[in-house]
Nucleic acid binder design. Structure first.
Lengths: 329, 329
DNA sequence: ACCTGGGATTAGCACGTGCCAATCCCGTGT
DNA sequence: ACACGGGATTGGCACGTGCTAATCCCAGGT
């Protein structure tokens, strides 16, 4: 910046004012400074800005790179943050890199708040401790740690909607392949059981264990295929699992939805593949991202101190993987 | 840091020495300082370190979040960078965020070099200009921009290996579904054509257009299904495309590999799904990551100035999606 | 001629750290 | 008793920027 100032023949401070687009500098001078900066290929030094500025206006985002849904959320976070006048700093959670390390890095970079996309296997154990230092917002996860906000979809309601949809179509033999102990899986399982109860078919309820992977869907489907009779419908804990179920059934000569209806969860890209075309539960990632940023902003700029928990209503996306059961031949 | 110093009762500078693990401080003092830092929950301020240090020892990584392969490469970059004593800073390339912006952000954060994972549709137009300022390494892409290093797999050789494998099995009706104008697609197409020529079956060569997506595999398979006779084997430009081909064929009652053998490319998670179990071409992401970091280090620490282009040999991973053709019934 | 006022510009400090040089302290040898 | 040496510790400056307050300059009114 000093170089630019010398090149134009003004003080460094004037250059600072011009580049920050602050009122004061004479339009003509402003023009000259901008030209000079361009000529010299000047780039602001973020490190120095960060050091000097009272506020960094940066939000840290912690995510794994494993799930498509996380990617969508990250993408949605960018415009939401920009809208609120914040930048995003990404921090990847990897097997080889401890969550602790990732969090420290982001805080070291002066992030004012952390947004944690909670699809990783374990939530940071010391979340409450971190929340003492900076606001923490969890997306798609609710650990209940104090000082933490949470935005998620009502997973129980989503699965209930899927089950209700199947019941409306005439199904009653509906099996659930769950997500084990992974985030959200408990809610989805409860939603399934609740819906089965409400529809008066509790005795038909059955939960097969899974883990949100295609492989777990394959395993579950194989278990079903070993039986004398297949259920007429399967509600999987997520789209990947549903995919595994469908593919395994198809290869065993069982057609979807003709023989068995299958529903997924998340409305990911997998769900909309033409040959799967899964009925699934849509999570509004855009809105989750907006609310997450809003939570951070409320704590940072508006002094909110109490915890906020937002639970969004999911929407059932009906596609062609579910249909009325065909009478047994 | 000053707080820690006051708390322990030593000078700030001593704290700096201890935390940087430099020789000098007395072991006992060192212990006390570390305890003090722990008590106060001290975290180094990266911004200040960056500002002060001559070197930032940070590498910027540009990637989209669209392809699994990119994720694998990013994961592999972390240990490679750590090995060389560098940190990674992630910069996401998104539709809503210009490459220009992403690059400026990373340079503003004082990244000493940029590693560009080249699966995005377009390479930054001003790459040569950027390379004047900081070393640039491209992974899985070769734009030929001056001042730029490139690490990629010999895609032509990979596809040749796949075709040769199929020919060895007895195939000659081998169709290629390509990746259009996307990065690497041209090489893969050429590899296919070259292998067909070498094996003396040029007249059987046929290229269907695609774009590395599952959908393009579906489209290609539908095109094939409309014909009187199917080819006996399909070599897809990547695993996703292969997946689309297989799924579409299966649903049309065509089995893999019994009726048609299908080979993919990338050895992604898709390829190893139990019901696909694709024969595919393995790219050594770990090694590409290591070399990419090495390229940056050579330019940064060892003064290399000439461009370096590394082409790795791929390895054919043979699974169950390819088999000898069954004589026509 | 002098004061006033306000737009334009500048000087100086501060942010938290790393590096260099200077200083302190204590045991040892003469 | 004094100089010496080396490990341990400290002071001061610099990095590039933003903010506050001060200064400059010039036109206009008295």
């Amino acid at each position: 910046m000093a170089d630019v100032a010398a090149h134009v023949g003004v003080s460094r401070q004037l250059v600072s004012l011009v580049l920050a687009d602050k009122p004061g500098p004479n339009p003509r001078t402003r023009e000259r400074v901008l030209r000079g900066a361009e000529d010299l290929g000047y780039r602001a030094d973020t490190a120095a800005q960060l050091l000097r500025r009272a506020r960094s206006r940066q939000l840290g985002v912690l995510f794994t790179m494993e799930h498509q849904l996380e990617t969508h959320i990250v993408e949605a976070l960018y415009p939401a943050a920009a809208e609120a006048g914040y930048e995003l700093v990404l921090g990847a959670l990897l097997p080889t890199r401890s969550e602790r390390r990732a969090i420290d890095d982001l805080i070291g970079l002066r992030c004012e708040a952390l947004i944690l996309i909670g699809l990783a296997e374990q939530a940071p154990a010391h979340l409450a401790k971190v929340a003492e230092q900076v606001p923490v917002v969890e997306i798609a996860q609710y650990t209940g740690a104090t000082g933490t906000d949470s935005v998620r979809t009502d997973d129980a309601a989503g699965v209930r909607a899927a089950v209700d949809h199947l019941v409306d179509l005439g199904h009653s033999d509906i099996v659930h392949v769950d997500g084990g102990e992974l985030p959200g899986a408990a809610h989805r399982r409860e939603g399934y059981l609740a819906a089965m109860r409400t529809n008066g078919i509790t005795e038909r309820a059955e939960v097969l264990s899974g883990d949100y992977t295609v492989e777990s869907g394959v395993t579950a489907a194989r278990t079903l295929l070993e039986r004398d009779r297949l259920p007429t419908a399967v509600v999987a804990a997520n789209d990947l699992c549903a995919c595994g179920v469908v593919e395994t059934l198809v290869r065993a000569g069982v057609r979807t939805p003709d023989d068995v209806s299958v529903a997924g969860y998340d409305d990911s890209r997998t769900a909309s593949l033409p040959y799967l075309d899964l009925t699934t539960v849509h999570q509004d990632t855009g809105r989750m991202a907006e609310i997450a940023v809003r939570c951070a902003v409320e704590r940072l700029d508006e002094g909110r101190t109490h915890d906020r928990v937002d639970v969004l209503e999911p929407a059932l996306t009906i596609r062609s993987s579910t249909a009325p059961p065909t009478p047994e031949r």
